[in-house]
């Protein structure tokens, strides 16, 4: 079964969109105001990661021709969600802990209760967009974004879902910067809609990218070896926080685009960001294949092959 991406949504600082993922410098890093992107109803009391996820999801579902406001449509049990985020609710957890320590539980806000649960992003997306299929929240560290694509594909091949919204998001705030010892986090969200080629063709969806081989390995070298066996890529997206001297010898001849270097530490969002960047590359006439790698430290490693959508002669 061939699984395709048929919709993509990108929400990045400075209003960055899909086409901007080819850039080598980010330019403006003005934080996105979700209220300027989507209907502000339902944004109140949602954490930053969830608000960003709402924006990217609406764009991705629209792009796939699957958007329907939940208030106006019945829930759709055949569409699932896989979200990857490692730090989405860290600020809520630390803030509430601080409040309780200082003033006791009566000083805490009941509106924080859903946000204290790590799955709040995935389930909030389901509610806002009426998507009642399998609903997964991955917090697996550096490999989590590419893993999310693989689990999304498996939900389709296992017959659990007809389409799956796969979304990566990480917020930028003081709590996360301090915890990760990172000067700047992504503060963005990226969503893609997956479906099998037959389903896409039957409903006339426009394919944007084909998901190729995915792999997991103990080390970066393990994943690079698996990907290299598929031939040389046109370009590749490396993991973040790996030094250039380690990366320089890998995939000789292929252009390396370090998305985290441009857009900020992306953690659980990186793999989905890499997939979106590959779509931007194919949109611009780029020829594939494109490889993505995440992890490589204590988290082991993940790799993925992305190829041009079917029907595109390149």
């Amino acid at each position: 079964m061939t699984v395709l991406v048929t919709g993509v949504g990108v929400v990045l600082p400075g209003g960055g969109r899909l086409a901007d993922l080819g850039r080598t410098e980010a330019g403006s890093l003005e934080p996105v105001d979700p209220r300027s992107r989507i209907n502000r109803r339902g944004l109140r009391y949602k954490d930053r990661a969830t608000q960003l996820a709402f924006c990217a999801a609406e764009e991705a579902l629209n792009d796939a021709g699957l958007y329907a406001p939940a208030a106006e449509a019945p829930v759709r049990a055949e569409i699932g969600i896989v979200v990857s985020s490692n730090f989405g609710n860290l600020d809520t957890v630390c803030r509430v802990t601080g409040t309780i320590g200082a003033e006791g539980t009566l000083a805490a806000s009941p509106m924080d209760l859903p946000n204290a649960s790590s799955n709040v992003i995935a389930s909030s997306l389901a509610i806002r967009f009426g998507l009642a299929g399998a609903n997964l929240m991955l917090c697996s560290g550096a490999t989590s974004g590419l893993d999310a694509l693989s689990w999304g594909r498996r939900l389709i091949t296992a017959g659990r879902c007809r389409q799956v919204l796969v979304l990566g998001t990480e917020p930028d705030n003081e709590t996360v910067r301090e915890f990760t010892d990172t000067p700047r986090m992504l503060d963005g969200a990226v969503g893609v809609v997956l479906e099998d080629a037959g389903t896409a063709a039957a409903r006339g969806a426009v394919p944007r990218l084909t998901l190729g081989t995915a792999c997991r390995g103990g080390t970066l070298a393990d994943c690079v070896a698996v990907l290299a066996a598929h031939g040389a890529p046109a370009r590749w997206y490396p993991p973040e926080a790996v030094t250039a001297d380690v990366l320089d010898g890998l995939f000789p001849g292929a252009t390396r685009v370090d998305l985290a270097q441009v857009w900020g530490a992306s953690s659980g969002a990186l793999g989905v960001l890499q997939c979106a960047a590959a779509i931007g590359w194919f949109d611009g006439g780029g020829a594939g294949p494109v490889y993505a790698v995440t992890g490589g430290g204590r988290d082991s490693a993940a790799g993925h092959v992305f190829t041009a959508p079917p029907g595109v002669a390149r």
């Binding site: 790590s118 799955n119 389930s123 991955l138 697996s140 560290g141 390995g217 082991s300």
Partner: peptide, 10 residues
């Protein structure tokens, strides 16, 4: 083990 997934599904 090298393939470990953390699924935070409440």
């Amino acid at each position: 083990a090298t393939e470990i997934h953390t699924l935070a599904n409440a």
